[in-house]
Amino acid sequence: MTIAGSIILIMLGAILTWAVEFDLAGLDINVVGVILMLGGLVGLLFGIYRITVTRRAVGPIDEPVHRHDIYEEPEARRTTVYEERRHYDEPPL
């Protein structure tokens, strides 16, 4: 679950808990809202934890890699250039 999805769950749960005045037989909308808010909070904490672990695992780079160490110039290739010449005998109008 992403951080944005967790925030959406928290907002949806808050709306169901405090803004909706609807009754269903055998279902309490307020409890559903609280459950959604708690699920969103758990997802938000897990998403933040996952981001911090990922950033910490990368670590600093010890030595920079220079391009000339890796890349070698290819050998010169022969290329053929085609040139088109047109001669117009008629004068422009």
Results as ranks from 00 to 15, higher is better:
residue 17 T to M: 13
residue 19 A to V: 10
residue 21 E to Q: 14
residue 92 P to N: 05
residue 80 T to E: 12
residue 15 I to T: 08
residue 32 V to D: 01
residue 84 E to M: 14
residue 6 S to M: 02
residue 91 P to T: 01
residue 43 G to N: 07
residue 65 V to M: 04
residue 7 I to L: 14
residue 78 R to G: 09
residue 86 R to M: 08
residue 49 Y to E: 06
residue 26 G to K: 04
residue 33 G to C: 11
residue 26 G to P: 05
residue 25 A to L: 15
residue 50 R to M: 05
residue 49 Y to W: 13
residue 91 P to R: 03
residue 52 T to S: 10
residue 25 A to Q: 11
residue 81 V to G: 03
residue 55 R to E: 13
residue 23 D to F: 12
residue 21 E to K: 12
residue 37 M to L: 03
residue 60 P to L: 11
residue 67 R to T: 15
residue 18 W to V: 07
residue 3 I to L: 05
residue 56 R to W: 11
residue 20 V to S: 07
residue 26 G to S: 07
residue 90 E to P: 01
residue 59 G to D: 00
residue 30 N to E: 15
residue 30 N to L: 07
residue 56 R to F: 13
residue 78 R to N: 13
residue 47 G to V: 00
residue 18 W to D: 06
residue 58 V to H: 05
residue 10 I to K: 00
residue 35 I to K: 03
residue 84 E to W: 14
residue 93 L to E: 14
residue 36 L to Q: 09
residue 86 R to K: 15
residue 14 A to Y: 06
residue 29 I to S: 02
residue 16 L to N: 03
residue 90 E to I: 00
residue 16 L to K: 04
residue 41 L to Q: 04
residue 81 V to A: 07
residue 92 P to F: 05
residue 44 L to A: 02
residue 16 L to G: 00
residue 7 I to Q: 06
residue 47 G to N: 01
residue 29 I to M: 03
residue 47 G to W: 04
residue 87 H to R: 10
residue 50 R to L: 04
residue 13 G to L: 03
residue 93 L to P: 08
residue 27 L to G: 05
residue 19 A to L: 13
residue 60 P to M: 13
residue 29 I to Y: 05
residue 43 G to H: 04
residue 20 V to E: 09
residue 36 L to G: 01
residue 51 I to Q: 06
residue 77 R to V: 08
residue 55 R to S: 08
residue 88 Y to E: 15
residue 46 F to E: 13
residue 61 I to Y: 01
residue 40 G to T: 00
residue 54 T to M: 12
residue 42 V to D: 02
residue 28 D to M: 09
residue 87 H to P: 00
residue 51 I to Y: 02
residue 80 T to S: 10
residue 8 I to D: 07
residue 3 I to P: 05
residue 66 H to P: 04
residue 22 F to R: 12
